[in-house]
Design a protein around this nucleic acid. Structure first.
Lengths: 194, 194
DNA sequence: GTTTTCATGGTACACATGTATCAAGAACGG
DNA sequence: CCGTTCTTGATACATGTGTACCATGAAAAC
């Protein structure tokens, strides 16, 4: 059978367990049962548990990137800095069940990596790259006169991304639902693009 | 011996373990060893593990509230809405080792409650109360002409608190250090208080 | 002074965990 | 046809886990 597909299937099982019963309930045996395979098979595709968790984290990264890319693509051409930010950032907020599962599992892994850094091989690479990307779009919007220019693009990008992270947490905890959180995010963006 | 003190001592041990090796490493035996007491004693003061985790969460809440109160008190009189926000909110960002421990342990517990709501008896009570408190201060600042009045205080409060949450995560992950995160937060506040 | 409650210790038990081992069919090239 | 490599299965093992049980001073109440 195809290796990548099997690994995805198992990783998906971990995501489901982590989102419903918590990451600590994702034992090798539970994962095997949830994925509908034998324990030995989980061991075969992910030799150790550490490798499994790393694989799941990578899988979650792909899922999230895919969701964002899809949201941006749905905007149609042309993709201006403004439409990019209004399209990509809200895609990170959990709305439907699937995005909630993904973000919840991601947050569980994220928290785990805080005390087990060896599980996050790339560490802050993606976070910093994303911030720089957002900063670049903000700067372009400023140069095009769409945004007020009296703010450092790097600072504004860091703020808006931290806001997204915080809103993710709030939605997961049930403080706001998806649309409410998106409204808060766009309210912040609206002040950026005066 | 004093009951409350013993419970605090044990809860503090859990916080240290959670911050260094992760909450999943906080088994009853490890907690006992870290606290320098016997396993039986941990069982005596917290009959079950669920009760222990609830106790630690309550303890963390007290520690955080105490830190914020201290930061506000350090501002001296009079406490205006503006000084309150500039004093209380940055106190939530991890700067020294102790605040890092507290926030890290809190985040671990928070993530755990997402899939085990029975561990968070008060749920969103505090979060909503804090948001309303911040909203009230923002509204007062607006009425005093210290802040631009074209923004809903509730929305602004929700945004700034989500930002704080996101900055906490970023600092824990090492993306920003404490002073950088505080600078980002005050940059946001500065735009609120034109 | 005896009894009862509190505080602490040691230990046992049933179970879950990650990992390793042994085994057997399947696919496939020589 | 045979051997080799890839997949999959069942199971064993050592250890860690939460919890329960029994025991012992100490203090307090009557």
């Amino acid at each position: 059978m195809d290796h990548e597909e099997r690994r995805s299937q198992i990783a998906e099982a971990v995501v489901r367990i982590a989102a419903s019963r918590g990451l600590e309930a994702a034992s090798m045996r539970e994962v095997a049962a949830e994925a509908g395979v034998s324990l030995r098979l989980v061991q075969y595709y992910f030799h150790t548990k550490e490798e499994l968790l790393r694989g799941v984290l990578a899988h979650l990264g792909r899922l999230i990137a895919q969701r964002v890319a899809r949201a941006v693509a749905a905007l149609g051409e042309p993709v201006t800095p403004r439409t990019f930010l209004y399209g990509a950032l809200p895609a990170l907020i959990p709305t439907d069940d699937e995005s909630r599962r993904i973000v919840l599992a991601y947050q569980a892994h994220y928290t785990l990596t805080l005390t087990r850094p060896e599980l996050a091989p790339d560490g802050l690479t993606y976070a910093n790259a994303l911030r720089d990307l957002v900063a670049r779009h903000i700067r372009e919007a400023q140069e095009a006169g769409q945004a007020s220019g009296d703010e450092d693009p790097g600072v504004a990008a860091a703020i808006v991304l931290a806001l997204v992270t915080g809103l993710q947490s709030s939605v997961l905890a049930g403080q706001y639902d998806g649309p409410e959180a998106v409204a808060l995010l766009t309210a912040h963006l609206d002040r950026l693009f005066t």
